[in-house]
Design a protein around this nucleic acid. Structure first.
Lengths: 233, 233
DNA sequence: CGAACTGTTGAGAGGCTTCAAGCCTAGTGG
DNA sequence: CCACTAGGCTTGAAGCCTCTCAACAGTTCG
């Protein structure tokens, strides 16, 4: 009856690839695996909403998650995209605040839920885990600070070019230089912090300048140094 | 000969007020005090610069520090103001990156320097310290994410009103409702992410609308709910 | 008392947003 | 399998918000 609920494969439930857990003792790792709950989530699924109380954090072993805040008039501001090997929801959990973002699946994903209790256990039990966690948050904070500076000082054109390059860094390209993440124009606008129409116009301009090639949502990079120049890097 | 170098008072060297150190054992606290180096810094002093390698973090026991990034054409983007009871420089230290911000004294300050070695010792020795540190970074990350959303979606007018209110929260008012931090118009512009002239024009408008009163750099709040409405909160 | 910095005001230009209308595509149900 | 519908995409026009440039007043500090 319930065989439409797909279970993740063993491989998709494996957390050994996560740097964060590398320094755990066998005992700690066993407890982690005992506690985790892994599921497959379809595109469009909301994992948690802004303002909700979280019970744990998620390790992503497959797929892409969009993390965003809802601003003025419900317009979303995308904070980050999280992919395989990354964790989400840990920020609100650690600071014991309500979630300040919403997380939505944009590419079929497998996530392992780790309870707050286990998170606290690991922090108490293993200083190297805490240290690693601190490094993760600190890096994310730097990225946020960098982005504040960009968004405050750069033009929309520069920001769009930069966002394309950032996406390239995070999601890489296939052998034809095509970006391996599929975003709507509106989503691009919600990263850059601009109107959808502006993104459309600027993308056309980038295309005319032979910086990129467009095919629906597929974006192919033709001239990366040129984009870097536009981005003012 | 060197009596122009002012030494901090005992009170100014006391770290017992810091929440962060509340859970230390007597031994750990002793080591912390043994390691710390406290000094008085005059207004205008640069504590560290973007790109430099840090040797420790600072606890502020007095004064105000401006933390900013240098963006396009050397235009500064203010990331935060840190005051008594707060710590700075810990982010780059923990993630073991070069400093991504510059820190400058804008109100005569006393800071205690704690070495990286001691920071690591505390992380290894006391999980509650790590946990507290994690909470501090996570809160700062939330604030950064909030600010990204604001700066990306709000008008300059809304942002300026919001920044005034944020400053009010962080630095409070005297008994005449006057903000207890003195900033140049340019600095205000560098928080909001706009041009100095825009700040000047908008402040005049706020004044005309009887939201605030201006006397040089002193800003007196006349109508806080009104400002909140302008800020679109 | 002058130099350097800060603050103020005006004018003009232009980047972006908004609104509106139409096209296209992707997914759905018959 | 195909028509249909909703949402995504595109383009144009109008206008405003904000920036830049420029000139000058005011302030602070050596």
């Amino acid at each position: 009856m319930r065989n439409n609920i797909i279970r993740p494969t063993e491989e998709e439930m494996d957390l050994s690839g996560f740097q964060l857990f590398k320094k755990l003792t066998e005992e700690e790792y066993t407890r982690l695996n005992y506690d985790k709950t892994c599921s497959v989530y379809k595109k469009g699924t909301v994992l948690y909403r802004e303002g909700s109380r979280l019970t744990g954090f998620y390790c992503i072993t497959k797929g892409i998650i969009k993390v965003y805040k809802t601003g003025i008039d419900g317009k979303e501001q995308i904070i980050r995209f999280a992919k395989k090997g990354e964790i989400i929801a840990y920020r609100s959990l650690l600071s014991q605040e309500l979630a300040c973002t919403t997380a939505k699946v944009i590419e079929e994903a497998v996530l392992c839920h780790i309870s707050y209790q286990t998170l606290l256990f690991l922090i108490q039990s293993n200083w190297q885990f805490s240290h690693h966690m601190l490094q993760i948050v600190c890096r994310e904070l730097r990225e946020a600070n960098d982005y504040i500076t960009d968004i405050a000082q750069k033009t929309v054109r520069e920001r769009l070019a930069e966002v394309l390059l950032l996406l390239k860094e995070n999601f890489e390209l296939d052998n034809q230089n095509t970006l391996q993440i599929s975003l709507t124009r509106e989503e691009l606008a919600n990263i850059v912090g601009t109107a959808t129409e502006s993104v459309i116009r600027l993308l056309s301009e980038f295309k005319q300048d032979n910086l990129i090639e467009l095919q629906g949502r597929k974006i192919k990079f033709l001239n990366i140094p040129g984009l870097q120049r536009v981005a003012n890097l």
